[in-house]
């Protein structure tokens, strides 16, 4: 295993700084990724959040990063999507006009149904129920709160890809995907870099992870 070097993708939008600050405070080396050449030598790759699905995909396309991200994932090195970054791991998304995502985990990103939830966006601290064990969840308890802000949610095709669920709105079918995980690819719908101690613990676990389950 090479030295840990965490790459954080700059999509020319969104809150890159908070993720870098959090990774930095945890003591990991990091690097901003703006082009394919920046991906060389990374041990981990993070796609951060905040923004519009379609706009973000257009940025990734303009930066010619979509295929390099997929290639990085194929090498079994750990990939993490945060908030919008998690949604971009999907195959398709509706925000800004339906179109393709980075396509690493089968599923579709759609807007909350206003009839089923009290407010859109889903904003604030909410409990995440963990569905199974995972190396990145070490020392993080099921049922603790993380900070969410999103109007769209990731509907995974295979329920096994949902590593964490969040209940919103009450009644039937009120569980939404809070964490996606398949092999070396992981996504948090909430913001670990904004979720104080438990969030930082998850980020630290991710940065220590070798991508194996």
């Amino acid at each position: 295993m090479t030295d840990t070097l965490i790459g954080v993708i700059d999509m020319d939008m969104g809150n890159l700084r908070s993720v870098l600050n959090a990774v930095h405070s945890l003591g990991f080396d990091h690097k901003v990724v703006r082009a394919e050449a920046d991906i060389d030598g990374l041990s981990h790759l993070i796609l951060p959040g905040v923004g519009n699905y379609r706009t973000a995909m257009q940025h990734l396309e303009a930066q010619k990063l979509i295929e390099p991200i997929r290639a990085f994932a194929r090498t079994k090195r750990p990939v993490l999507g945060i908030c919008l970054g998690m949604q971009l791991l999907s195959f398709t998304g509706d925000e800004g006009g339906t179109g393709a995502g980075v396509s690493l985990i089968e599923g579709h990103v759609e807007r909350f149904d206003p009839m089923r939830v009290p407010t859109i966006p889903h904003v604030g601290w909410n409990e995440v129920r963990l569905t199974r064990k995972h190396p990145v969840l070490t020392k993080v308890k099921s049922g603790v709160d993380f900070y969410f802000v999103h109007s769209y949610h990731f509907r995974v095709d295979d329920p096994k890809d949902a590593l964490g669920l969040v209940e919103y709105g009450g009644g039937e079918h009120s569980d939404y995907v809070a964490i996606v995980a398949r092999d070396n690819v992981l996504g948090f719908q909430f913001h670990p870099e904004k979720s104080q101690n438990n969030g930082l613990k998850l980020l630290e676990n991710f940065c220590d992870w070798d991508g194996a389950c």
């Binding site: 939008m13 700084r17 600050n21 405070s25 900070y147 802000v149 904004k194 979720s195 930082l200």
Partner: peptide, 24 residues
Amino acid sequence: FMPLALGGGIRSARDAEVLIRHGA
């Protein structure tokens, strides 16, 4: 490491963008 919201003097979407890029 928690959500930060800032305002007071934002006059354009560009101002908002600068704040968000700086960590808001």
